[in-house]
């Protein structure tokens, strides 16, 4: 070993022990662990996640009839009468046939795989100009109405935490989970 290399290795050893002595840790930085335990109140106020199993669906209920009235009040301006012909997304297809069979315009009725998604999306994001302004009963009612308009549920239907996960959407069987096998 040359004198230079020897001196270099001594410097490295010294700096390694210096790092140790001063609790420095360049290789695996330590976490300062500063997270604060969240209160149950905060979690309850923020947690809006709903799973297709129905996990997370709140208490309450709403019927197609109430939904029809609320639709005229909150939704028709953007989505058109009965869910068609508006400026924004078409919500309703003519018949409850799966998109996977018939193609055409993708709507709630012929494409969306889970009814719970409809409740979740209306509750978090609609109406567009006043999101999160509807109460859970109103969201259930609008969900019931749109499912009825799409021919997925009968004219008199009450949406609630036990009924929604049981609704089988027409196109559900056409969905495949690509993760983790899919490669672009």
């Amino acid at each position: 070993m040359s004198r230079f290399a020897l001196r270099l290795s001594m410097v490295l050893m010294l700096s390694a022990s210096a790092a140790h002595a001063q609790n420095l840790s360049p290789a695996a930085p330590l976490s300062p662990q500063l997270g604060k335990v969240a209160s149950g109140e905060l979690v309850a106020a923020w947690d809006m996640t709903i799973l297709p199993s129905g996990d997370g669906l709140p208490q309450g209920s709403g019927t197609t009839e109430t939904g029809a009235r609320l639709y005229l009040e909150h939704c028709v301006a953007c989505h058109g009468e009965g869910g068609v012909g508006g400026l924004n997304n078409v919500l309703v297809s003519d018949e409850p046939r799966p998109f996977g069979e018939t193609g055409g315009k993708r709507t709630v009725g012929n494409y969306w795989p889970y009814a719970t998604t409809l409740f979740d999306y209306i509750r978090r994001a609609m109406p567009y100009s006043h999101p999160q302004s509807l109460d859970d009963n109103e969201v259930y009612a609008l969900t019931a109405y749109l499912l009825y308009r799409n021919g997925v549920v009968p004219a008199h239907f009450e949406a609630n935490a036990s009924a929604l996960p049981k609704v089988v959407m027409p196109n559900q069987e056409y969905f495949i989970r690509a993760y983790p096998d899919w490669n672009p």
């Binding site: 998109f99 996977g100 494409y111 795989p113 056409y174 989970r177 690509a178 993760y179 899919w182």
Partner: peptide, 9 residues
């Protein structure tokens, strides 16, 4: 006609 969910990369 099938639809792929979770095509991430």
């Amino acid at each position: 006609g099938k639809s792929l969910l979770f095509t991430f990369p």
